[in-house]
Amino acid sequence: MAEHPGFQDAPIEDGAGDASRSEQIRGILVQVREDVKMGHAHDEAALLRQRLADAGISVSDDEIERYVAHE
């Protein structure tokens, strides 16, 4: 349940909390790529960094670069 009414601050799909760190990052990356593809964002790395921070997943700049370059 969200701590703030009207805000989703946790995964809503069953099993989402059981995903590994890598699976969580890859799932967020898929969402980010769709947002970029649809024109809702232009900087994939910046949006990925923001979404990961929002999810409480800390990543290094090197990790961000690897995910953006190799996926």
Rank of each mutant, 00 (worst) to 15 (best):
G6E: 13
A2H: 14
E13H: 05
S58D: 14
A55K: 11
D54Q: 06
S20R: 03
D61H: 07
V36C: 01
A19L: 13
E63P: 03
E44C: 13
E63Q: 08
Q8P: 10
G17R: 09
S22G: 09
V30H: 06
P5V: 13
S58K: 14
A46S: 12
V36L: 10
V68C: 01
Q24I: 04
L52G: 01
D9N: 10
D43C: 06
Q24N: 04
E65W: 08
R51L: 00
R49K: 06
Y67A: 02
E71T: 08
E34R: 11
E3F: 08
E23F: 13
G27M: 07
I57G: 03
R51I: 01
G6T: 11
V36G: 00
H42R: 15
E65R: 15
Q31S: 15
E13W: 13
E71V: 11
E71R: 00
A16K: 12
A46N: 07
P11F: 04
E3P: 01
K37T: 06
G6H: 09
D54E: 07
L52F: 05
R33D: 09
D9T: 06
D43V: 00
I12V: 14
L29P: 15
R26I: 04
A46E: 08
G15S: 07
A53P: 01
S20Y: 11
A46Q: 13
E44L: 05
V59S: 05
S60K: 01
D61C: 02
S60G: 09
L48K: 06
D18M: 12
V59I: 08
S58C: 06
H42K: 13
D9P: 00
G39F: 02
M1I: 11
G6M: 03
R49Y: 13
H4E: 10
A45V: 03
R33H: 00
D35L: 15
Q50T: 07
E71Q: 06
Q50S: 14
A46K: 00
G27V: 03
K37V: 02
E44V: 02
Q24M: 13
L48M: 10
E13N: 09
